[in-house]
Write a protein that binds this DNA or RNA. Sequence first.
DNA 1: ACCTGAACACCGTTCAAGT
DNA 2: ACCTGAACACCGTTCAAGT
Lengths: 240, 240
Amino acid sequence: MSEDQSENPSESDLESDVLTHVGRRTLDRKQILREAVRLIDEHGRERLTMRRLGGVLGVEAMALYRYVPGREQLLDGVVEYVMNELYEQTMTVEQPNSWQEYLQKMAHGVRDIAAAHPRVFPLVATRPPAAPWLRPPLRSLRWVESFLEGLEDFGFSGRDSVLIYRAFSTFLLGHLLLESSTVDLMDESVDEDIEFFESNRLSDYPRVQALGPQLSEDGYANEFEDSLEDLINRIQAFTE
Amino acid sequence: MSEDQSENPSESDLESDVLTHVGRRTLDRKQILREAVRLIDEHGRERLTMRRLGGVLGVEAMALYRYVPGREQLLDGVVEYVMNELYEQTMTVEQPNSWQEYLQKMAHGVRDIAAAHPRVFPLVATRPPAAPWLRPPLRSLRWVESFLEGLEDFGFSGRDSVLIYRAFSTFLLGHLLLESSTVDLMDESVDEDIEFFESNRLSDYPRVQALGPQLSEDGYANEFEDSLEDLINRIQAFTE
DNA sequence: ACCTGAACACCGTTCAAGT
DNA sequence: ACCTGAACACCGTTCAAGT
C-alpha cells in the first residue's frame, strides 16, 4: 500500500535520508491536523502532545510552530478538521425532498462524524467556540451555513431557522456526547469500577442496583432515532 | 467568603512559615476538593495543577498524594464534589406533588449547579463515567437513586423510569453544556474572533452573517424551560 | 502520621543557529 | 525557507528523608 501520492514535484532536490514515519516530507497544516486526529483516535486526547505529534510526523516538535500557533490552536484545528473532513463525504449526495428529510440527513451526518472519532468528539463539544453562533457540535461555518440554507430553501423564516438551529444543536450535543463518551469507556475504568463500588457501597442505592442492567443497556441508536423524530414532529407542530 | 486572595500567582519561592493561604491547617480530602473547585471557578480548568493547588492550600504539591491518588482522580473528585455539594441544598426542600413537579425540581437543581460552576461543568459532562449507568450530567449515585426513587413513588415502572432517566440526561447534558460553555466564553476569544473572521471570510457565508445577531442572542433560559416542558409532555403522552 | 526536598521524565514554547 | 539544539519554566509523580 505504498501509494506515493506526490502532488509535490519540487521535492526531488532534497536529500531525504530515512523518513520512516511518514511517506512524504513536506509538512503542511492539513497533514499535521490529519495526523493529530489519528493520534487521538488511537491513543486518546491525553497523548496528543506537540512533541509526540512531531515524532509521528518525523520532525522535532518545534517545527510544528511554523504551521500552528500553539497547542490550543492545534486542538481548535483538530475540531475544525474533523467537522470539515466529513462534510463533503456526507453532504454531497443528492438533494432531499423535504425539510424533514434534510434534518434527518444532517443529524446522521454529524452522528457519523462522532461515531468515526469518538475520542475527538468531546473536543468538538467543549472547546470554547470562536463565536457565539457556532454552537457545538456544528462547529464550522460550512455546517451552519448549509443548515440555514437548507431551511431557507424549504421556506422557513430566519427567525424559525434560528429556533430550529438551537433546538437541533442541543439535541445533537446531548445525544452524541453521551454516545461517544460511552464508546470511549470500554478501554479503561474496569478496575476503577471495583474501587468505586467498594468506596460507595452500591447496596445503599437499591434502585440503581436493581435497574443497573437496564441502565447499562446500549440503546443509543434507538434513542437517537426516536428523539430525532420527536424533534422533527415538534418543529412541525410549532411552525404551522 | 474567605477573602484571603492576596498573593500573586507568579512567584515560585514562597515562604511557607506563615501559612496565610487557608485558615486551618489540617488537610483533608473534602477541603482539597473544595479548594480545587474554587480554583477552577476563578481561573479555569487549565490552572488546576497539583503544584498550584498545593500552593493555595499552603502545602507542597506532594502532600496532596496522601489524600488523592493522582491528578485524574482529583478531577473525578471535583465532579463528585460539585454534584454532591448542591444536592442537599436543592433537594432537601419539601416533597413535590406530582412527577412533573419533581422532574422540574430535579432539572432546575442540576441547572443551578451548572450555573454556579460553569467552568467545572465541562468536566461533569466529559469525564469518563465510573459506570455506564452514571450518565452525565447526573454523575453521582445520590442523584440517580433519588431520581429513580422519585419516579417510583409516583408509580412509574422500572422500565419507564429507565427511559425517562435517559431522555432526561440527554436533555440536561445538551442544554447545560451549551449554556455553561457560553458563559465561559466571555473571558477569552475576543481577539481570536478577529483572526477567525479574517481567515474564514464571513461574507462567504451570507446566511450566518445575516442571522448572526439572532444566533448570538442569549435565550438559554427560555430554551431550557420550553424544552423541559416539552420533555415532560412527551413523557406524559408516552406513559398513558 | 504527615509533610518536604530532591530527583526524574515529560511538557509547551522561545530563539539563535544551522542547512 | 524550513528545521534543529539548547534552554527555560512548568508539569505529575516517586521516594527517601525529615519532623
